[in-house]
């Protein structure tokens, strides 16, 4: 089922968190949302899983408008992995996973045999079956994250929305999780910080900056050195993955790429290059300095 964001804006306390965001997430595909901190990615997702009501604009699932659906109805269509992964009580792993069935049951009806099996399968898929009776509060961050993903899967949604699902995961589980997400065949919208993982996992990427969508398209179209500089304030090289051909971003830590001619760093003419260059950027440096990393710069 398609997911469409149509002119979403969110204003809280006079601050504009999201400005006129329109994005369509095609059926069965994985779409990534990237952008610097505070660019409105999580805010956009909250509007989709109904933790936040947009000030204007709407979210459509297929032909249905989200605000017209009841909370439970929309929870049967959209499952979310949120950022507030704090759990208050020491439920066991299987209990938390079973809570994913909440929107499907009425009141306190206990889970049926089919639902219990669904939960067990999800736990096996996420490699947490052996933890079933452990208390969630005793788990590591990565284990807990996988429990929450399993919970979202047993919700049997049409659309999966994930806010930085690879947080706390080691590299193996990051790769496994994203492979698994691709394998579900669900319409997926995922916020990722790791651009390389995003390029590998997503069919399309949307780039948010200061609450606005500044680019959208395939990872190859979107992830260009120019955009990375404009939006994230970093100079980076984009290469093709030798096996998959996905664009991959390489960063250089010192902000001193080969400067274009004519904008060389100030140095007294005729003197030899400084043997121990000052690491702190000078005001006239053409490269971005600390204050430039926010996307409020000229870029967008």
């Amino acid at each position: 089922m398609d997911l469409t964001l149509d002119g979403l804006s969110v204003v809280t306390d006079g601050r504009s968190l999201l400005r006129d965001l329109s994005l369509s997430v095609p059926d069965g595909r994985c779409t990534g949302l990237v952008g610097p901190n505070g660019s409105g990615k999580s805010t956009a997702l909250k509007c989709i899983y109904r933790a936040l009501r947009p000030s204007s604009g709407t979210v459509r699932i297929g032909e249905r408008e989200l605000p017209r659906l009841g909370m439970r109805q929309s929870a049967r269509l959209v499952a979310a992995l949120t950022q507030d992964g704090e759990i208050d009580l020491d439920f066991t792993v299987e209990e938390v996973v079973a809570l994913g069935r909440t929107p499907h049951g009425r009141g306190n009806r206990p889970l049926g045999a089919a639902e219990r099996e669904l939960c067990e399968r999800a736990m096996e898929r996420l490699d947490i079956a052996h933890l079933a009776r452990r208390g969630v509060l005793t788990l590591s961050g990565g284990e807990r994250q996988r429990v929450l993903v399993a919970r979202a899967l047993v919700q049997e949604p049409e659309i999966l929305v994930l806010d930085e699902p690879t947080n706390h995961l080691d590299v193996r589980h990051q790769v496994e999780l994203l492979s698994l997400l691709r394998g579900t065949g669900l319409t997926t919208l995922v916020v990722l910080h790791d651009l390389n993982l995003a390029a590998a996992a997503c069919d399309r990427l949307g780039v948010l900056c200061d609450g606005r969508l500044v680019a959208a398209g395939t990872p190859r179209d979107v992830l260009t050195p120019e955009l990375l500089y404009d939006v994230f304030g970093v100079r980076a090289t984009v290469v093709s993955h030798p096996l998959t051909g996905d664009p991959q971003v390489l960063y250089s830590l010192t902000p001193a790429p080969p400067a274009p001619p004519g904008t060389a760093p100030e140095s007294a003419p005729g003197t030899a290059p400084d043997p121990s260059p000052d690491p702190s950027p000078r005001p006239s440096d053409p490269v971005p300095n600390g204050s430039d990393t926010s996307c409020t710069s000229t870029g967008c």
Partner: peptide
């Protein structure tokens, strides 16, 4: 139970 998972998660599970 759902409320103990956090407000946002609760909303995503259909519990306001």
């Amino acid at each position: 139970d759902v409320m103990a998972l956090g407000d946002e998660t609760a909303a995503s599970l259909g519990v306001s």
